[in-house]
Design a protein around this nucleic acid. Structure first.
Ligand code: MN
Ligand code: MN
Ligand code: ZN
Ligand code: ZN
Lengths: 134, 134
DNA sequence: TTACTAAATGATAATCATCATCAATTAACA
DNA sequence: TGTTAATTGATGATGATTATCATTTAGTAA
């Protein structure tokens, strides 16, 4: 009698993708995650990784970080926080700068947009790359 | 006697690309700019547009905006300012929120990175897209 | 347990943005 | 005006992401 409820299944693929992402703080790309997951599920497809990361990001379980660089990155830490990207090697780290709540308030006043959120991306050179610059 | 100075030429292509970018405040993508420029230079190649946008961005004449969305965007306004992107249609607008200089100072204290800069990207729904949501 | 079915997967192809290559053209300058 | 290295336009290559679809499977109920 009810309309068929669209079921979201708990597949092994999904669980392992989330587990592997939760293990690291490196903000891996989809294909980095694919390599990590393949050690436990050698037959998983790259498309499955993309599909599930997208789904989990939409549902708010994880964060999709779209910053500079060519690939999107993912983050199991969903607390609001900022990032810094190395302009040499592209790595992305968390940065411990407190979130500025006033920014969203100011944005609401000065824009006709319906504001949803904000993100701050710092750029710089990571310590590894600083050393390598002879 | 001097080492041959690598000459940067003032080509018509370069001038027109910069002129067209300066006309708008819409943060066009490379292919949007290609369409704009082609009206005046029908034989220009898309590669030329990419090449020159990259060059101008490196030299600081223009800004390359790498935010959410699939394509990079370009900006003739080089003063430090923040942007807002519509999560529905992807358009990018300037937002009149004052730049927070303290952010970089704080980042320098709390990170081993050599900090180069920062950018704030707000997300929201633009007024056009608000209307269309029946 | 078993059977049913819609959701999900894995393999593969398609798409899209960007970059690389290279012969032909051209801006700068002697 | 001739020389030459920088640049262009055409084209192909690359890399990331998305779409397609036959096959598999999680969830459910008999
Ligand atoms: Mn993070
Ligand atoms: Mn701008
Ligand atoms: Zn680095
Ligand atoms: Zn919009």
């Amino acid at each position: 009698m009810n309309a068929p409820a669209s079921m979201i299944r708990l597949t092994t693929q999904r669980q392992i993708i989330l587990e592997e992402l939760s293990k690291v703080t490196s903000h891996p790309t989809a294909s980095e995650l694919y390599d990590m997951v393949r050690k436990r599920l050698p037959r998983i497809g790259l498309g499955t990784v993309y599909r599930n990361l997208e789904l989990m990001a939409e549902s708010g379980m994880i964060l999709k970080i779209e910053v500079g660089g060519t690939q999107k990155r993912f983050d199991a830490t969903t607390d609001e926080h900022y990032h810094i990207r190395c302009s040499v090697c592209g790595r992305v780290d968390d940065i411990d700068v407190p979130v500025v709540k006033e920014l969203v308030a100011q944005a609401k006043e000065s824009s006709a947009y319906m504001i949803q959120g904000h993100h701050v991306e710092f750029t710089g050179i990571c310590s590894d790359c600083q050393k390598k610059q002879h």
